[in-house]
Design a protein around this nucleic acid. Structure first.
Lengths: 185, 185
DNA sequence: TTTAGTATTCAAAAATTTCAGAAATTAAAT
DNA sequence: ATTTAATTTCTGAAATTTTTGAATACTAAA
């Protein structure tokens, strides 16, 4: 119901960062609050703790659900809804990542695809198209890569993450490894 | 001075995406415009092309420079400043990435570090601290990784990007590779 | 110096976003 | 059915962000 000084500081920080992360202050606070609170909270508890209106909390919940960052819990014999994080920290980071890709990259990718298909009619359009092609290729690579990462097992991901500067070394061996099995891409 | 329909569509799209990418509409448009225009443009040309005020362009230029996305060109005997992209598409994507890390991750990382150092006084704080530790570790890993990527040569990056689903295979060989030289992490 | 061609700043206006609180809605319990 | 408990939607006010345009500053040449 009321937060310790340190926890409050964290929640407020989440609020300040909220807009940078793709939502607004209140929603940032709500997200922070729910992730550091052990027990799921009701909408009223959230409103009280953060001193914001009940209506605002309702909108925030909807938004956080659309990001798939929180989920509802029910307590038998209690008709209130209790909200808590939708998964582990890693899960949530993935959701944010995925959702942002959807909002920040996909629309552009689609526009670029359309644009590249058409024929350029003059030099300006030709140059522009080259640039767009490059942007397109880059975004597509990023997209493929992030899909790839999501396909890896958590253990593989763990190793990959721990690899650090080893990645350079691993790359040097890549050709030998990949060419041996004769399974060219 | 005036854009073809398709190029205009791209520039306007950049404006609409602008706020998602970390800046505002006008700045998004300016960035898009300058990247698909072959020749560097003056501030007045930008203002005319986008139908925005000269002052706004001046602010936008300053902002884009702070992101290191554009650079100034000079033409002998002409005292106007001409603006063009600061590098290749890849360079620019890197800049955006880097800059956003600075704004979206670093402040949180620093707050978390402080918070984790302090001792927890009760169960609520204890649980909160565990979560914060996880967030911290995750963000730190991401940070290290992005630094790592920037250290790779463009060729290595190229191979890494093309690796695609090969990454799984490469990981399976990781141990053999890394353990052989006896250079444990 | 002065002047003319620039670029920048900044206060005010416009546009957009966020938010509280009231009203409407939904759903369970009686 | 009615009451009660809860959630959602909606409206306008407040806060914030963006944009303009006039005033100011800068700079190179005359």
């Amino acid at each position: 119901m009321s937060l310790s000084e340190k926890n409050l500081a964290f929640v407020m920080h989440c609020g300040e960062m909220g807009s940078r992360w793709g939502f607004n202050r209140t929603i940032g606070q709500m997200c922070g609050l729910l992730t550091i609170t052990k027990e799921p909270m009701t909408a009223n508890e959230i409103a009280d703790t953060l001193s914001i209106s009940r209506g605002n909390v309702s909108m925030g919940i909807k938004e956080l659900q659309s990001w798939r960052l929180i989920k509802v819990h029910h307590i038998p014999g209690d008709r209130k809804e209790y909200y808590g994080p939708a998964g582990s920290i890693w899960d949530m980071a993935n959701r944010v990542f995925e959702e942002r890709k959807k909002r920040e990259i996909d629309p552009t990718l689609s526009l670029l695809r359309d644009n590249i298909l058409e024929e350029a009619h003059n030099d300006d359009e030709r140059f522009a198209q080259q640039q767009m092609q490059e942007i397109h290729d880059l975004l597509e690579t990023v997209t493929k890569w992030s899909a790839e990462l999501q396909r890896l097992s958590p253990e593989q991901l763990q190793s990959l993450m721990k690899l650090g500067s080893g990645i350079g070394k691993v790359l040097d061996f890549k050709d030998k490894i990949l060419k041996k099995p004769g399974k060219g891409e």
